[in-house]
Write a protein that binds this DNA or RNA. Structure first.
Lengths: 140, 140
DNA sequence: ATAATAGTTTGGAATTGTTCTAAACTATTG
DNA sequence: CAATAGTTTAGAACAATTCCAAACTATTAT
């Protein structure tokens, strides 16, 4: 039901961002957006594409992820050195990060608030506030 | 004044962490801790060492940074994919991150508070809460 | 002191994640 | 349907980091 709408609106959203709805971009978009909230690395998305018999190069996966991020379809999350996650949830929210598995889980913004946010330094404006709650497995 | 104390206590702190106070570790420790709060990448520390005529290999810089982190002398901060910062301030605090320059600035924990922290998922405990306030230069 | 040992350092190769490049391809426009 | 502007691609290049096995050094036991 929402699938159809979301699929056809994707084309519109790509166009709105100045991105042509190519075979690759649409295929990646489906993988990304047809499964609820997800947190994927470029590697992971590329593997999923291969498994779904979608031919895309690694370069295109990276290009696409960055372009989607630029037009607001994705949000980049940095929690671990040397690996970027892309989050299909672009609403205001935060994350649990499971150090053991490398997984991320959303924390809706009404479950965690930052208060007394300090003034940004002279000549700058706040772009975003990222909160990462790092969790570890309870002791063995 | 505090220099002497901090220097001699360093040896003790290394030992407490099970690390032998070697030439390299002490030299790196001085570079790190004799200049107030700092946020350095491995690369940067290695350059500083070279400039100070301290002979250390890159591998040792990485080993040392991680060992220091493990024993609580440093804290690792991840804000940018593909680059790790090490923070000499290990107290509870947060960061401004300047996207333009890649610089970090501490936000003391009394200037920013997180409230309504959600329960950690079943079987896990909260290890740390990192808040990164990303700032960008005011418009041109 | 000294020898034995356990921990440390090192250069260089290897790995990992990501970006670059220039040529081939494809969607859009006129 | 041709022109063009944007896209994709394989593979090379890159950057940060880790791995490796040999040489070295601090500590411990003698």
């Amino acid at each position: 039901m929402a699938k159809e709408r979301s699929y056809s609106s994707l084309i519109a959203r790509l166009k709105a961002g100045g991105l042509r709805p190519t075979r690759q971009r649409l295929a990646l978009a489906r993988l990304l957006f047809e499964g609820g909230d997800r947190h994927l690395t470029a590697e992971q998305l590329h593997s999923e594409a291969e498994e779904s018999a979608v031919r895309v190069s690694v370069a295109t996966v990276y290009n696409t992820l960055h372009q989607f991020t630029k037009v607001g379809l994705l949000r980049e999350v940095v929690v671990e050195p040397g690996r970027s996650y892309f989050d299909t949830n672009v609403d205001d929210h935060h994350h649990f990060y499971f150090e053991a598995t490398g997984d991320l889980q959303d924390i809706p913004s009404d479950r965690l608030r930052v208060r007394e946010l300090p003034e940004p330094p002279e000549g700058t404006r706040i772009e975003r506030v990222d909160v990462v709650v790092r969790v570890r497995n309870l002791e063995t």
